[in-house]
């Protein structure tokens, strides 16, 4: 977007900061057991205090309460949202963003404080204010702005019962970064669980990975001078021969160096993830994972024994265990 567009957008949006999005709204239903029960069923709430009057009365609560995380529910608009949501200042603000190409919207954070338990018969009124709009940010989703609204919840006596900060990102969708587009499986609509990133297989390395698929780790050997080499390459660096065969490694070795990975978490891998350079008894080194031991207990020089294992739906890999 041009500097002029950005200025025009920012002039309009920042004018919304501090505005209430509309009049205080009284919940259409008072806090009631039917809605609580439906909520508790879906959420897997096991506590009887949410729907069993008799058992609830034996607890410190002395009777049924609404699940605390339900607070926002009492402010929701309900079925009209599906087709013709009410136009308020918040939607007007979003429409300004949309008109400048910031069509993406993503809830990123909520922070909900509960000042007291809500009980059947309580009546909840909510009022939402547009509290802050950030400066323009570059996010993983695309360029955008964070909008924070604050909703204050009051009861039938005008006493505050809770407060919620809701943070959304309005952004220009990043074409190359659409998670859904990238991972979706057209037929089922459900992405498959991710697997590890496979090695590309070319003429010089494909044979090695095919052997791994069959459960073996091979080491390339020069036919002319018998020097072993890994990773594979087409020519012997000792004698320049392009003739080679291979031997199968017994996968006995020791840890030459290792590191444990925590961040970023790439889908398909389990963290903390321990990777090591293994010095094999045959004399060559191999990078592989160390498993079957707490990562903090791994040491350089530790003896390890490898085996080729299936690590996910599609991947066979050598994995090393303490010997």
């Amino acid at each position: 977007m041009t500097a002029a567009d950005r200025q025009a957008l920012e002039e309009q949006i920042y004018a919304y900061v501090g505005r209430a999005i509309g009049q205080p709204k009284k919940s259409m239903d008072d806090v009631n057991v039917a809605m609580i029960r439906q909520w508790a069923e879906v959420m897997g709430d096991e506590s009887s205090i949410y729907f069993d009057q008799q058992r609830a009365s034996t607890t410190a609560k002395g009777g049924i309460i609404a699940p605390p995380s339900m607070l926002q529910v009492w402010s929701m608009e309900g079925y009209p949202m599906a087709a013709s949501p009410a136009v308020d200042e918040q939607r007007a603000l979003h429409q300004i963003f949309d008109s400048f190409g910031f069509t993406g919207v993503l809830g990123t954070n909520t922070s909900t404080e509960m000042y007291r338990d809500l009980r059947p018969g309580d009546s909840v009124t909510s009022q939402t204010t547009i509290d802050t709009i950030s400066e323009q940010k570059a996010t993983a989703r695309g360029i955008g702005y964070f909008i924070e609204t604050v909703t204050v919840f009051t009861d039938q006596h005008g006493e505050a019962v809770g407060r919620q900060v809701f943070r959304v990102l309005k952004f220009i969708p990043n074409e190359s970064n659409g998670q859904g587009a990238q991972d979706s499986t057209e037929q089922s609509g459900t992405p498959a669980p991710p697997v590890r990133i496979p090695s590309p297989r070319g003429q010089d390395n494909g044979w090695w990975w095919q052997a791994v698929d069959a459960g073996k780790v091979l080491i390339q050997r020069c036919k002319s001078c018998s020097t072993l080499r890994h990773p594979p390459r087409p020519m012997c660096g000792q004698c320049q021969s392009v003739e080679w065969d291979s031997i199968e490694s017994a996968l006995a070795g020791e840890v030459y160096s290792f590191t444990t990975l925590y961040h970023p978490k790439v889908p398909g891998y389990h963290y903390p993830l321990c990777c090591a350079v293994i010095e094999l008894a045959e004399g060559t080194r191999l990078v592989a994972n160390i498993v079957g031991i707490d990562h903090d207990a791994v040491t350089i020089g530790m003896k390890v024994q490898g085996k080729v294992e299936q690590v996910d739906e599609k991947t066979m890999l050598p994995q090393f265990y303490p010997a």
Partner: peptide, 27 residues
């Protein structure tokens, strides 16, 4: 050819510059 080189590391999860330098640093 470069991604074939990364192929010796990707399946194990050794994917980032931090992880490659870490391997040498630990030793």
């Amino acid at each position: 050819s470069d991604s074939i080189h990364w192929g010796w590391y990707m399946p194990y999860g050794l994917l980032t510059p931090a992880s490659w330098v870490a391997m040498c640093t630990q030793r």
